[in-house]
Design a protein around this nucleic acid. Sequence first.
DNA 1: AGTAATACTACTAAATAGGTAGTATTAACG
DNA 2: CGTTAATACTACCTATTTAGTAGTATTACT
Lengths: 139, 139
Amino acid sequence: MFRFNKDMEYALISLVEMSRQKEFQLLSARELSQRYAIPFKLLARILQKLSTDGLIKSVKGPMGGYRLNEQPENIRVSRILMAVRGEERIADCMSPGGDCAQDKIGCIIKPLIQVFQDKWVSFVENTTLDEFTGSNGNG
Amino acid sequence: MFRFNKDMEYALISLVEMSRQKEFQLLSARELSQRYAIPFKLLARILQKLSTDGLIKSVKGPMGGYRLNEQPENIRVSRILMAVRGEERIADCMSPGGDCAQDKIGCIIKPLIQVFQDKWVSFVENTTLDEFTGSNGNG
DNA sequence: AGTAATACTACTAAATAGGTAGTATTAACG
DNA sequence: CGTTAATACTACCTATTTAGTAGTATTACT
């Protein structure tokens, strides 16, 4: 819980790598897959999601590949999450149809969850890719 | 991903309910389980974790139950997470042994993940139970 | 035509989350 | 002192989600 899953990790790796490419230069799924030992088909599927969203541009055929379709400073983490995962709620409690913890009065933890939800959204909206393209860890 | 799971929901419900009790008054797992239609044994197990942690105090025997062992304003969400789930990392990338996305230089997304991790920790450290004991939603 | 790339969909395996069951321990109460 | 109602602990099972695999279609460079 509260973890980046592999899909998100792979998407982030790909986007950071693309942000390091020269402008208009393409990066193929095969190249990325080999460089980071990511299963090829799995990675391809994720890149296709990013492409469908418009975050990256795809070029088919030999010499094809992907490149960023936005400036890194305009790529919000919220958008990456949306492209990879679609709409998501922070708890069942927040669902519209509502698998909600009801007593006779109402959902007792909804106010709490709402505070979390709001802060979380604000965080992912205000964090962009360019914050991370600088120095490299060695983990 | 990035969701409260049921264990956390049940823990939050229980703690908010206990914070509404009169001082030293006990609330039993059975009562909570019935009030919110939470499976009894499952809830009991979670309450035992909170009790082991010291967040709540347990009293055995007939007329027994649980009560808060701390003031709501001193109960940080980080502590509830720790009690229920134990130590957790925001991504495999942050593990010490490190299932990390390595290229030849180092882990390419570690700086990014670290920013998230830090902000997340600061958030759960600075959010306490008393922020939520006020008005009730009707979810 | 051959090949190397993306696009799409179905399926399978592994891991996690959610729930069930049974037994032990404790303490109030008649 | 036995019954009962509570917590404590552990093992197990099921459902859902995550992660990975496979195959085929499409596109475009050579």
